[in-house]
Design a protein around this nucleic acid. Structure first.
Lengths: 155, 155
DNA sequence: TATTGTTATACTCTATAACTATA
DNA sequence: TATAGTTATAGAGTATAACAATA
């Protein structure tokens, strides 16, 4: 009885092949995401940009003067959740909030020189991490994967 | 100036096409995962099984008498994190911890009749949710996606 | 010594609701 | 009335470290 269980558990391929979970997109998305996430953090190091901070900085560099509301929308998160992210970017002098003439409610987000530089260095590190982590996938497979993942988001 | 920003932000396709983020597997995995996660929760309802509880129950039904350590390993989480999940399954009478003769450290996890039934009903709900949510993807595309996601996990 | 289950604790990420200052 | 940013707060989900019981 115990022997049988052990076999089932240790025989990973068999488990993967037969488990209902393995046929679910959600479960497989989560497992894959957590693997990439962990490797991302390891690649950027202890004091490196956290994934969500990296994403925010990326869009601020690409769209300087973007507002927090617009950025939150692009990132798919709530405005309130973005505050801590921008706080960190400002604390580290990578971004600063600047007043906007015609609407005093708004604060435009502007990347600093250091912010831009840090971002581009981090981006290269992230690309290396993905290239290495996903070396089992061909370029074509990676393209296909990206296309399918975006299709889920585009609904 | 403000106009220009607004255009950039509202033009989603352009943003997606040109953003460095959009070329990253990690970012796209996360976005897709969160969409599926949210829909999963909506599909199973307020008092439905949480994703991680569903996953645990699925493997317990498939591998009755599995130990917590073995289950944690299959799920890719820590033993300590599994305790609350099993607590909930036991509280809801879907699973019970049972003593194992030859090793008194171990407690085998056994699904109840109600647990099995609840699982199979939930599985059908999950399958419907995925079918509906991912209706833009062909069966072939879904298979490809699953294959690629598993490939990331298999390292 | 090593392993199983457990507890305590903390961290990350996110959401909701309510506030303020502006529009 | 509505919007932008903010705060307070709570809830998932996870990890690490230490412990007791057992091997």
């Amino acid at each position: 009885m115990r022997k049988k269980i052990k076999d089932q558990v240790s025989d990973k391929d068999d488990a993967q092949a037969t488990s209902a979970l393995e046929e679910l997109v959600g479960y497989n998305l989560k497992r894959a995401y957590l693997i990439v996430l962990e490797d991302f953090r390891a690649a950027l190091g202890e004091d490196g940009l956290a994934p969500r901070v990296f994403s925010a900085l990326s869009l601020i560099v690409q769209f300087p003067d973007i507002t927090q509301s617009a950025l939150a929308k692009m990132l798919g998160i709530e405005r309130s959740g973005l505050v801590a992210i921008i706080d960190e970017l400002e604390r580290r002098k990578f971004v600063h909030r600047t007043a906007v003439p015609n609407d005093r409610r708004v604060q435009a987000l502007v990347p600093s020189e250091a912010g831009s530089k840090t971002y581009h260095v981090a981006l290269e590190a992230v690309r290396r991490h993905e290239t290495e982590l996903l070396s089992d996938l061909s370029c074509e497979e990676k393209d296909t994967l990206l296309k399918l993942l975006r299709k889920i988001r585009d609904n």
